[in-house]
Nucleic acid binder design. Structure first.
Length: 496
RNA sequence: GUCCCGUUCGUCUAGCGGCCUAGGACACCGCCCUUUCACGGCGGCGACACGGGUUCGAUUCCCGUACGGGACGCCA
């Protein structure tokens, strides 16, 4: 049977990097096995689901290069089938009506309240099978329902036995029924609940492998119970280790902000292939130990067996703009920027320039070669695409800032530099042709004549022409900026 | 509280009983290259949580302890 996997996010916010990694692993597995990668939006929580989230999830997947097969499925559209399944289980006596009125919960601290109640229950030794309606006669149950009394439908979990499944990552898993509550399938307002919906949809979509976060490990037992009650084939499961914050806690929007959102990486200048590569290495490692892997190589080497079991810490430094996200992610992005085929990088730089009003149509036309050469020259030391429009600004616009420290270091400390640079400008005007070699010869010759070290002029020029103390070879800069701009900037005398 | 999962350099990880004086990558430090900063090259720092077994031999297998994580809803 051919592999069918799915990514099933709930559209209640941006695409979390943990979810993005789940999507990636599912996608890789599908592509590796020649199976199908399906996308299902779990929008059954009408209160929290938004169209905007759905859109951002789809955009995020697209950005990562994860294309899905077949039609997008909206879980909410399947509610009738979910209800029908619950009713069928009710008919078959595998589920029962629970007439206990719905508890009102304060949304604020649900998690804590629930954990506390669970603790109290175990301490008092409350039996999971103690629901008084569990053994209510069919006649009585039907009568009360017919009378209009509200009820939820719960799965009647057997008293004795255990669920078991073999997790591809974590191995054999077993859980006693005694530890599983009679989970609610249908709310008293007729709304189907998560575990039911997931199982019904996975069955109807023909899912063969469920690859998802380890936080679902306990849900899986409940779902196995449902597959069995429904008489359906249980799929294979592969649970993924979690991605944790630097403090080893769960990565969350509330606590960690935008650094956990996939869109942040797009918006802050990540190359999709780099981020995808980084994400793939979080919890999985390729057999050969090679770390820079193209999409094709990832597909080629990927295997569920290569997934580790320990949670990974995603390191970021909240208050450090230079290292705002994981060091390795940043390094990988820089690696991609400086080594990827130039023709693939150029459109990304173009988009970045467009967004910053630095783009000129000539770059696509008569200045195409110049643009390409310049990007190639400066990309060597950039970490993100943002650097092209910030640090790289002076290469494309006359309106750029001078770095104060650079001015102090390379210009201010030598009083006669202003005169020297003017002299250098004069000299450069006579150079023919004007390129890196001739500019170098001219500068060195001029330094000799003036009896100063070439380095003085090189560093001074760099700061005059780019506003910075660091950058590519000065002679390359002369060539790329051209004679006119070089000369003009050398003479533009800022106040030092 | 109960159940489940995990624990190799600061971080991501390799390791599936002897190849391990534990390998790689990022970060950090040094040297070389370079009159800038990077890149690159070379080198350095740096880990098997702890205690018991099993074995001729444990990072690898078993048990326990500690620590960390996850789950426990008429949320998903």
């Amino acid at each position: 049977m051919s592999v069918r996997v799915r990514f099933a996010p709930s559209p209640t916010g941006y695409l979390h990097i943990g979810a993005a990694r789940s999507a990636l692993f599912n996608w890789l597995y599908a592509r590796k096995t020649g199976g199908k990668f399906l996308l299902r939006i779990e929008d059954t929580d009408l209160q929290r689901s938004t169209e905007e989230s759905t859109r951002s999830i789809i955009e995020g997947l697209e950005w990562l290069g994860l294309d899905y097969d077949e039609d997008l499925v909206f879980q909410s559209a399947n509610a009738p089938q979910h209800r029908a399944a619950a009713n069928r289980l009710l008919e078959e006596g595998k589920a029962y009506r629970d007439f206990i009125p719905k508890e009102q919960r304060d949304d604020k601290q649900v998690k804590q309240t629930i954990a506390e109640r669970a603790r109290a229950n175990t301490m008092e030794g409350v039996d999971q099978r103690s629901n008084p309606f569990r053994e209510l006669s069919k006649e009585e149950s039907d009568r009360r329902a017919a009378a209009g009394e509200p009820f939820a439908i719960r799965l009647k979990v057997p008293t004795h036995g255990q669920t078991r499944f073999d997790d591809i990552v974590y191995g054999p898993q077993e859980r006693s029924y005694a530890e599983i509550e009679d989970l609610v399938l249908l709310r008293s307002d007729g709304h189907p609940l998560y575990n039911l919906s997931v199982v019904i949809d996975d069955i109807s979509m023909g899912i063969t492998h469920v690859i998802r976060g380890q936080d679902h490990l306990t849900n899986t037992h409940k779902q196995v119970l449902l597959y069995e009650a429904l008489g359906a084939k249980v799929p294979q499961f592969a649970h993924l280790p979690l991605i944790l914050a630097p403090n080893k806690g769960k990565l969350s929007k509330r606590k960690h902000g935008e650094v956990v959102s996939l869109t942040t990486y797009r918006d802050r200048g990540f190359v999709p292939a780099a981020f995808r590569n980084f994400l793939a290495l979080l919890g999985w490692s390729p057999p050969e130990g090679k770390e820079i892997l193209s999409k094709e190589e990832l597909v080629q080497y990927f295997s569920l067996e290569g997934i580790g079991r320990a949670n990974a810490i995603f390191n970021f430094h909240e208050n450090d703009p230079r290292r705002w996200t994981d060091d390795k992610a940043l390094w990988m992005n820089a690696e991609y920027i400086r080594t990827m085929p130039l023709h693939e990088l150029l459109p990304m730089v173009k988009a970045e320039f467009r967004a910053n009003k630095l783009w000129r149509e000539e770059y696509d036309d008569e200045d195409r070669e110049w643009f390409s050469k310049t990007v190639d020259l400066i990309r060597q030391r950039y970490f993100t695409l943002k650097d092209f429009s910030s640090q790289g600004r002076a290469y494309f616009s006359d309106d750029f800032d001078f770095d104060e420290a650079a001015v102090n270091k390379n210009l201010r400390k030598e009083p006669q530099l202003r005169e020297l640079l003017n002299g250098l400008a004069d000299k450069l005007e006579t150079v023919e042709p004007f390129n890196a070699e001739t500019a170098e010869a001219a500068l060195r010759g001029f330094a000799d004549q003036a009896g100063v070290k070439a380095g003085l002029l090189i560093n001074g020029s760099r700061t005059m022409l780019t506003g910075q103390a660091v950058g590519p070879s000065m002679f390359e800069i002369f060539e790329v900026l051209g004679r006119d701009r070089s000369v003009q900037r050398l003479r533009s005398g800022l106040p030092w």
